[in-house]
Design a binder for these strands. Structure first.
Lengths: 220, 220
DNA sequence: GGCAACTGACTGATCGTCCAGTCAAACTCA
DNA sequence: TGAGTTTGACTGGACGATCAGTCAGTTGCC
């Protein structure tokens, strides 16, 4: 163990065990929901004693928040970077904006997918919940980047009003949920034709769908 | 009490107390989720002893299912009726189909809204879940009507392929979730400009958005 | 009197949380 | 350097609360 590693192992909650807990928490929260998730199961999956969760995170709510914060930071950094990159290249195009909005979520969400879902499903339940914990976290971690993308929509489509841009963003997020929830329903409804496990194939439909929807809201 | 009413009160679970339990279950499941909901709270809100829930419904899962079945029956009957009415009038138009798809859900969902949400939020969590209970119920109560509307989409837009029609339906449902979840986020993101409590105002944006999206998937 | 509706105290399991204690590494000072 | 002290990650059993579910008993209408 290097001195650097020792130093990191000391910092709470940034050590390897704390990360293992966050990884396990992601799996269990995703498959069981917040209320349904048992801290004992998280501890077991992380290969850690039950008490260690409270040592590092205090309580269940703070564990949930730290878990969301970690992954959300990655997602929204990638979103911001992609948007900045598009701006640097010149005029914004609607298709590129929508692609930039969803690809980081897909890739981060499916990365850890096991039985299918992973972190993305946590986002879905957070987005559709209105309890104070979920609302505060959405406000903290996702509202700032939302404002950026709403502004980008208006830049790309100058005829789009402010209210329409906000609605368009909300609708776009709603469409993205279809993809992230990974329920298997598209396959069932289409006799195997559609697969919500294939992120690229889905994105190929989602992007034109949303762009068509946005342009339909533009008052010309 | 009429003989008819007495007869209904006899059938389990069809009596007035059973209905009161279902009403209370709707409220509690909506605000706390399936795992978070406590049968004791449901009994208390219904003004009924805890044991009566098990007398009428057996267990928590069956109570949940009966509750969903009751309201879903109303929603999907209205959906089917509206679609049949459109067909009877002649050629199907995309805007009318989308309107027919959502209005019954909105009206049934907001009808019982108290702190905001009601049954609609249960639908949202069901649609985005992949646990066996939610999947089976979605399959039983919502897949049949989904097939009808997917077929209607293809009739209204002949250039729309089968896979595209299924995706379009899924995306449309995703957009509808935005509206049904009633998180208050649109208002927050727009400084009060957008209100997700105003179903009619939302539907006025959702319908053109979805229609624009669907038409963007049509291969011409 | 019979039967279905209904009650509420109860059970065992499981939950989040707590805490006394272990242990190895880091630090202190002669 | 090395014995004594301190630190902090970590353990695992115990706690009270609460959960879904059970059941013997009561009620009220035919």
């Amino acid at each position: 163990m290097t001195q650097q590693a020792q130093q990191e192992a000391r910092e709470a909650p940034g050590g390897a065990r704390a990360d293992a807990i966050l990884d396990a928490a992601e799996l269990v929260f995703a498959s069981s929901g917040y209320e349904g998730a048992a801290l004992r199961e998280i501890a077991e999956r992380a290969g850690v004693a039950q008490g260690l969760i409270h040592y590092h995170f205090g309580n269940k709510a703070r564990l949930f928040e730290k878990m969301v914060a970690r992954r959300s930071g990655q997602i929204n950094a990638a979103r911001a970077e992609r948007l900045a990159h598009l701006r640097a290249e010149g005029a914004l195009h609607l298709e590129e904006i929508v692609e930039a909005l969803f690809r980081p979520t897909i890739e981060t969400g499916l990365e850890l997918a096991e039985d299918g879902g992973g972190f993305a499903r946590i986002l879905v339940s957070m987005a559709n919940s209105n309890d104070p914990l979920a609302r505060d976290m959405t406000e903290t971690y996702y509202d700032p980047i939302a404002h950026d993308y709403i502004a980008a929509l208006q830049e790309a489509e100058p005829g789009l009003g402010r209210a329409d841009a906000v609605w368009a963003y909300m609708f776009a997020i709603g469409v993205g949920m279809t993809m992230m929830a990974k329920t298997g329903r598209p396959k069932r409804l289409s006799d195997g034709l559609c697969d919500d496990g294939d992120a690229d194939a889905m994105l190929a439909r989602i992007v034109p769908f949303i762009c068509g929807g946005v342009r339909a809201l533009v008052t010309t």
